[in-house]
Write a protein that binds this DNA or RNA. Sequence first.
DNA 1: TCGAGAATTAGCCATATATCTAAATGGACG
DNA 2: CGTCCATTTAGATATATGGCTAATTCTCGA
Lengths: 99, 99
Amino acid sequence: MRINEVMKALADPTRREILRLLNEGEKSAGELAERFAITAPSMSHHFSVLKAADLIRSRRAGQQILYALNTTVFEDLMSLLFDLFGRTEAGMHEKEGEQ
Amino acid sequence: MRINEVMKALADPTRREILRLLNEGEKSAGELAERFAITAPSMSHHFSVLKAADLIRSRRAGQQILYALNTTVFEDLMSLLFDLFGRTEAGMHEKEGEQ
DNA sequence: TCGAGAATTAGCCATATATCTAAATGGACG
DNA sequence: CGTCCATTTAGATATATGGCTAATTCTCGA
């Protein structure tokens, strides 16, 4: 996991809301876009940031592109946060995050 | 908790490293600064961002200012991440077994 | 093959951010 | 007091980011 890309991706409120919506299930780009007051190209930019961070996955279905959460990153994120905040008693979590 | 401020604070690698160092225990501004290749004013800027996000607390001890983690935010952060990634009932039924 | 619909890519602009140097603040101590 | 030391504040600058419009790509269906 690229921590920096993940964290930067999560730093934007629009992207966090996209993730929240995708938590309900797979949605098309257009379906997501209509929930926001920004243009499709801007949304597309956010999708690419989320994809680069591997927070979402996409697949084409006809003319549409469907996006879905990549939940495996969640665990990595938890691991990172424990690394930052977790009060550890010697070896409580062996697996250290990168960076 | 101001999610946006917390997330933006965490988006910077220097600030994440500061938190990691503070996880070892309280440290002075200078003590933290000497670990990085950036100037004291730049460090000070990062401290203020972390403070604004309530991720750290500070207290004066003579000429020095000591910083410490504010661990209570950790729980809030976890809660937020579950909100983003945690499978809710609706989501669970839509994409079961997906990874 | 052609046109329409969905989405992305390209290019531009304004704002936000991270960094620096220089100056100001606040405490310690002779 | 006066000066030193630790840190912050002010102000400047370069880069990053997020938004837009216009143009392009890709797929579907007549």
